[in-house]
């Protein structure tokens, strides 16, 4: 019950912040990372944000926390690195979603000596999964 009431507040907050009502229901609350259990059960088609959040902290997926901190990571057992900037206010900083996707797909295009892996170009994460990660990023 605790989870769902949090979810409710979270959704309310998201709606208030973005003024959009077209948000798909999320199993993960804003400011938290999904649990392993949630990740095992998540349906990416119905809940892309949670699926994206799951991929972001998956060692075989994005492993984004190796280099970035973001809301919710402090509540997990994962240790965030600081090789890249904190991921926050993504929507404001990347009003063009395509640019955000491009940063994840191939960070080297914007910065030749970046240390961020080219997740799409090197097929570390599939194109479909990058879309999910971007959906999750947009909630940060």
């Amino acid at each position: 019950m605790r989870k769902s009431s949090k979810l409710f507040t979270a959704l309310g907050a998201a709606v208030l912040m973005t003024g959009s009502l077209a948000i798909a229901p999320q199993a993960m609350a804003v400011g938290e990372m999904p649990s392993k259990k949630v990740c095992e059960a998540v349906d990416a088609a119905k809940d892309p944000v949670t699926a994206g959040g799951c991929l972001a902290t998956d060692r075989k997926g994005g492993n984004c926390h190796a280099c970035h901190t973001f809301a919710g990571i402090e509540k997990t057992r994962l240790q965030a690195g600081d090789l890249g900037p904190p991921l926050a206010a993504m929507k404001q900083r990347f009003p063009d979603k395509k640019k955000l996707r491009a940063q994840v797909w191939d960070a080297e295009a914007a910065n030749r000596i970046t240390v961020m892996p080219p997740f799409g170009r090197h097929k570390i994460v599939s194109d479909k999964d990058i879309d999910l990660i971007v959906e999750w990023l947009y909630t940060l």
């Binding site: 190796a66 965030a80 690195g81």
Partner: peptide, 12 residues
């Protein structure tokens, strides 16, 4: 990348 550019920082 790791031992010059990002030396002294945290990877995880």
């Amino acid at each position: 990348s790791c031992h010059v550019l990002k030396s002294g920082q945290h990877a995880g």
